[in-house]
Design a protein around this nucleic acid. Sequence first.
DNA 1: GTGCCTCGAGTTCC
DNA 2: CTCGAGGCAC
Length: 689
Amino acid sequence: MSDALPGTPIEAAVELTRLAAQLAEYDRAYHEQDAPLVTDAEYDALRRRNAAIEAAFPDLVRTDSPSHRVGSAPASGFAKIRHVVPMLSLDNAFAPEDFTDFVERAQRFLGTTQPFAFVGEPKIDGLSISLTYIDGHLAFAATRGDGSEGEDVTANIRAIPAIPQTLRGPAPARIEIRGEVFMDKQAFLALNVAQEAANQKIFANPRNAAAGSLRQLDASVTASRPLRLFAYAMGESSEPVATTHHSYLERLRGWGFDVNDLSTQLPNTDAAIAFQSRVGTERAGLPYDIDGVVYKIDALDLQARLGFVGRAPRWAIAWKFPAERATTILEKIDIQVGRTGALTPVAWLTPVGVGGVLVARATLHNEDEIARLDVREGDVVEVQRAGDVIPQIVARIGDHRPDSTPFVPLDTCPVCGSPAHRPAGEVVRRCTGGLVCPAQAEEHLIHFASRGAFDIEGLGEKTVREFFADKLIATPADIFRLREDQIIGREGWGELSARNLITAIAQRRTIALERFIYALGIRRIGEANAKLLARHYGSVAHWRAQMELAVQIGSEAREALGNILRIGPAIATELADFFAVASNRTRVDELTGLLTIKDAEPEAISDSPLAGKTIVFTGGLATLARPEAKAIAERLGAKVTDSVSKKTDLVVLGTDAGSKAKKAAELGIATVDETGFRILAGLEVNSGA
DNA sequence: GTGCCTCGAGTTCC
DNA sequence: CTCGAGGCAC
């Protein structure tokens, strides 16, 4: 299998096609018949070959590429599946004004005042699932995961009778269908009775019961649980299947899926607002839990034009019902020290059930929040779970106890005793001890090993805390000096687990530059900014050298830093401050000595003629609203600014273009009219006129 | 100068 | 998930 890679794109395409079919067949045999056709080693070799060819011919990656299914199933747990279309979250509304804001934003984006038709669908409290059907047969199923990568739960999904294995009637060659797996309230109660009788775990709520039932390694357990599914969304599809969302739901019914009967087409905003209150009154009588209603703009062409902002579509919103609240006692206010030294007050509560879970702690965020709520230890407080997840204190109930005293912010760190300062204009108080503070050092290590950073399997938060407490590791570099004999014999650690951990650490000795930068835990350098820096500097050596220079105020390196898009003065200063500290430089250099840090890959360049260009729009556009035109240009890799300068590559002249058109002419910058822009953007074909 | 949007950092429970 | 703060467009 170490054959040379195909020499031509045609050979490559042929081989990729063959590999996709072959691997799909092996997958089916493995998962469906539980009868592997090849050894694991042979299978892995084929996958590696597929990946190598794809790396050499990235344009040829197939939509049904086996590489979209990453990794084979590990001994325990689930393999990962990458979503071809990310599974995103939705913006929330809590009041009619939030809903009308959402509508107005969409209208502004499209440059229209036309009302929208919507589809309203009860938002089931379950788990989102992605189901991919190839040639009408269920090929694989994945959980939402982090939105871009979920867990492969194909075997478990196959065990649910309510989910079709085969689509009824004609269907696209490849289609991904999304829906919510859930358990009826009654089935949940019955399951808990059975669980109790069998001395098994009791589930806190139907959602947890559904999640627990689906995440069974033994699919026969899943089969025994009464799980249901409502289908409601489209992922990728090899051909269009509908022009409106409501007709898409009809197609789903036709293929054999359950679609929520309450889902309704709504002609306008007023109808949506009325629907919200109607569903609200029916909520308690429904056989399943819902936490709101999702509204989607019905026309799919509008959905496509609206696209996404951040992590949420512009064409849908989740209008939530008010969260359930509970009353309990605030027993104690504790102070936690975070990775950056932030002192965060956390409330310890008399445990109370809220929305199906027992809540014992809730963050108070900062001292301003405590003052705003005017809460003290001993107060009775009202608690809710924000977005039905994170507990928060909503309000104090009644008066303070007579003997209570107001919360006094600490002026020293509770862990290391260093002074704790709250800079003017900021909300957060911070320990000034830096990495000398054991709490900060420990949180730093947790961050270093965490998912977006080095992602060391087996070195999770709990293990880091244990190792840190026992002085096995004090700095990130210590992780790479760990030896098996230091771990074997510790509680819960045998020879095998120790060896696995050392292997996992060794695997991460080679690391991408962006992960390395992120792992350092420099304030304000999160995943996104680390990526920007990595892409900009390319290699550790270059980055390191430039950072050294940036420490000098007025240096070219520092100015260059500020010129990176989205890196402003605050972030530049933070980096310079970090590298001004000798111990930080030592840490970085120690790590670079121990590791192999891979150069960053340059920005993927789209083949659009607009890619990499700086564009200015001026005047009125007839066919596109300004925000939409901007979004289209940016999607094709252009940067859109609002004033014409030497750096501008192209000016799009609308009607009544004024001073900017003149300036473009003066500077000799290329201009196009709106039609010209549409052609460049690929929105229409050049008619040759 | 104001207001959107993105990002970072903090957090809970299972 | 939520908040505050930074960056940048308007």
